[in-house]
């Protein structure tokens, strides 16, 4: 029971990490809270559903759904987000909030209002025995996906020239421009990558949570809490924030089911009292 809950918390944390990492870096670079980030998560799940339905292959969905949401993110950047950087935050909030509704209605129009599900790939159909407790192997796969993305992002951000340029742009946008760093290009690729990761999260958890209109709102609030708690703009913040919220949420539901939501907000309030900028804010 205890091991199962730890693994569940870890799996949920990794899903939150995939979602929050794009959001937090984009916020660090563009100072935009993209409330429509959850919509890309939902679209990732739906696009994955369509690919899976037509091809009968989860793996094709797993590969192409994130690519599709990354392309969608690139288009959104070119036609919308590029023009709302560093403007009145209220305009950003209204625009991205509007996108949530556009996304929701588009999904209902294309896929209908019914809930759907994607079958777990055959490779992970049998549960695994961990210290006497059986656990679905697919959930372990979700954890593995999160850890793999974390390691790749860590390597790229911390160890490469490209990563140094992204970190520099998050740290000080104007100085980066002054040094000849093409911040516009960095914003474009980072935004698209963030949208791709949201799509990856969507298609990856679809076999666990199902696919339905409105699944975006459920994760959006938690993702925003992760960003606030971890500190905007920080990879480390996204990881620690995701682990914290993932574990508090999972164990809160187990031990205090009536107070499940309160535990998350209490954890957030406690952290913000001592660290108003979040645990690892880069801003």
């Amino acid at each position: 029971m205890f091991i199962t809950e730890i693994l569940n918390a870890l799996q949920f944390s990794m899903t939150l990490f995939l979602l929050s990492v794009g959001l937090t870096i984009v916020f660090g670079l563009m100072k935009i809270v993209n409330l429509a980030h959850g919509t890309l998560y939902m679209l990732g799940a739906y696009i994955g559903l369509s690919i899976w339905t037509f091809s009968d292959s989860f793996w094709l969905a797993f590969v192409f759904a994130p690519i599709a949401t990354a392309i969608l993110g690139a288009l959104l950047y070119k036609v919308l987000f590029k023009f709302i950087q560093r403007v009145d935050p209220m305009r950003q909030v209204l625009l991205t909030f509007g996108l949530i509704y556009i996304g929701l209605d588009s999904v209902r129009l294309i896929w209908g209002s019914m809930s759907h599900s994607i079958t777990t790939p055959e490779l992970f159909s049998n549960p695994i025995n961990i210290f006497g407790e059986t656990y679905p192997t697919y959930r372990l796969f979700v954890i593995l996906v999160g850890i793999t993305v974390l390691l790749i992002l860590y390597f790229v951000l911390e160890k490469t020239k490209m990563g140094a340029m992204v970190r520099a742009s998050v740290d000080d946008h104007e100085t980066s421009q002054m040094l000849g760093i093409n911040t516009e290009k960095i914003l474009f690729y980072t935004f698209s990558l963030g949208c791709g990761l949201a799509g990856l999260a969507g298609v990856t958890v679809a076999p666990i949570v199902g696919v339905e209109a409105g699944m975006d709102m459920e994760v959006l609030v938690l993702t925003l809490i992760v960003v606030v708690v971890g500190g905007p703009g920080s990879l480390k913040g996204a990881l620690i924030g995701s682990l914290l919220i993932g574990f508090v949420d999972t164990f809160g539901k187990v031990f205090f089911p009536e107070l499940a939501l309160i535990t998350i907000y209490a954890a957030m309030a406690l952290i913000l009292i001592f660290k108003p900028g979040g645990m690892y804010s880069r801003l």
Partner: peptide, 19 residues
């Protein structure tokens, strides 16, 4: 102040001259 405050002196200069 127009420095990358999260970085060391070495990293600051490396980012700048890597361009």
């Amino acid at each position: 102040n127009s420095l990358f405050n999260e970085m060391t002196v070495k990293e600051n200069i490396m980012v700048a001259c890597s361009q």
